[in-house]
Write a protein that binds this DNA or RNA. Sequence first.
DNA 1: TACTTTTTTGGAATAGATACAATTTTTTTT
DNA 2: AAAAAAAATTGTATCTATTCCAAAAAAGTA
Lengths: 134, 134
Amino acid sequence: MSMKKAKMMLESKDIRPSFQRMKIYKLLMETKEHPSVETIYNELKEEIPSLSKMTIYNTLKLFVEKDLARLITIEENEARFDADTSVHGHFKCLKCGCVIDFPVEETKLPAPGNGFTVDNIDFFVRGTCPGCRN
Amino acid sequence: MSMKKAKMMLESKDIRPSFQRMKIYKLLMETKEHPSVETIYNELKEEIPSLSKMTIYNTLKLFVEKDLARLITIEENEARFDADTSVHGHFKCLKCGCVIDFPVEETKLPAPGNGFTVDNIDFFVRGTCPGCRN
DNA sequence: TACTTTTTTGGAATAGATACAATTTTTTTT
DNA sequence: AAAAAAAATTGTATCTATTCCAAAAAAGTA
């Protein structure tokens, strides 16, 4: 993803496109592994030596508020982020640790019932991936 | 739940029924709010002044391994536990903070696909509960 | 009772996340 | 363009949930 595209995405959500924010968003779009703050920090600190983890925390919090990213919990104790904000499932292999997205039709999901307003859905499955079964 | 019943439940899963373990299991069964380690500690420390949080951590980890409890993530950064190990959904109201269980038919849930073995399903929904909509 | 294993306990250490104030950068005003 | 104001970034100190570890206590076995 180009920096120009990242800039447009941020602006479309009323987020000022600072260099750090654009870089973080770009990385989030290009990385399929739902990186953690630590991962993002390690990826970007070479290019932006002054980068502070606080900036990453602030930025990701802002992205989540503005619906530009989703917070997902793969392991307790570490927040992971996903630039795909649509409803979809996450599968984690307990053997190799890989995380795979899979499609989910929102209309086919069970709902808590009448009277509940749904803002956010997390569907998370753990098990063994095809590669590790062999 | 009686201590005798708690003891039987532990023994059925090959867990030695120490006093602390029985008390923790009993509390977990009687509490619908999916308590955290901190909550369990505060609830039990009066009756068991010597109780250590480490015991609670160890015990819950053992329960989860032996399929006597489930680890659920309601808020990132704090583990919560559920004595109901069957597949069911959790709804969290973003206004009042209440957590409500709701039934889910496992056969109707989307699956990651052929070739995947499923061990564990988490279905978590956030939004507004009927009480808070009024 | 003596010996072995298991469980519990508490204090120190770890790691992710937050609070906060000082800089730096950007935007607005003059 | 310079000054002032606002916003973003940074580093340090701190917090909190969790884990590590080794000693003490309890339970089980001979």
